[in-house]
Amino acid sequence: MIELRGIHKAFGENRVLQGVDLDIPRGESLVVIGGSGTGKSVMLKCILGLVAPDAGVITVDGQEAGKGDRDAFLARFGMLFQGGALFDSLHVWENVAFRLLRGTLKRPREEAREIAIDKLRRVGLKPQVADLYPAELSGGMQKRVGLARAIAAEPEIIFFDEPTTGLDPIMAGVINDLIREIVVEMGATAMTITHDMTSVRAIADKVAMLHDGVIQWTGPVAELDTSGDPYVDQFVHGRAEGPIEAVR
């Protein structure tokens, strides 16, 4: 469904992506792992067109990203941002229903609010939360609201950028379970970026490891511990010694 071929991206002298090739089949949950600063988020932003790659081709169902109707292209995606990226000036329900209050998916406000409350309930939040502002919520609640916003318009493809960063282990487990349930329930294609191995095991069908600007290894999550790849082994076991330099 999503294909990346030869993606390069540099910021000045810093060559972040140096020829990324990756396939994400429809309905699969792919988790991309890799150290901090290895370009995982940049790769994800390249797919969405938030960052323009220097070279390479990205296609979604054969359609080249960045060409054709951009609104229709983006309407297929939902995204959970690392910090939530909730709009401070809007109520929680307006954040969740953002897409349903404007543009081609616009609905009457009451209907949009009902859908938002339903999605909030789906991620384990009470309807009373709907009328609060994001600043009034805890980090875990903000993540859930971000998740509710990502699924509100029932997208075909959902991206999760570091979904458990900054959360305690219990809340991280709750978010991981929610992501897995929602992806299975919606039949969505999912791509998650994380360096949290608990998330990887909970969310992934398939895992890809990004290092030195290229995909070093891809395989089913069941083969993660027996991959035989020294980069994956070092990362999975959290060893300071190995081919990945600890000081970057």
Binding site: L48, L74, F81, G83, F87, R102, G103
Partner: peptide, 16 residues
């Protein structure tokens, strides 16, 4: 602040 907290990116992904 919206830019550094990725709210501008979020707007784009929400087709706005």
């Amino acid at each position: 602040t919206m830019k550094v907290t990725e709210q501008i990116d979020a707007l784009v992904t929400l087709s706005t």
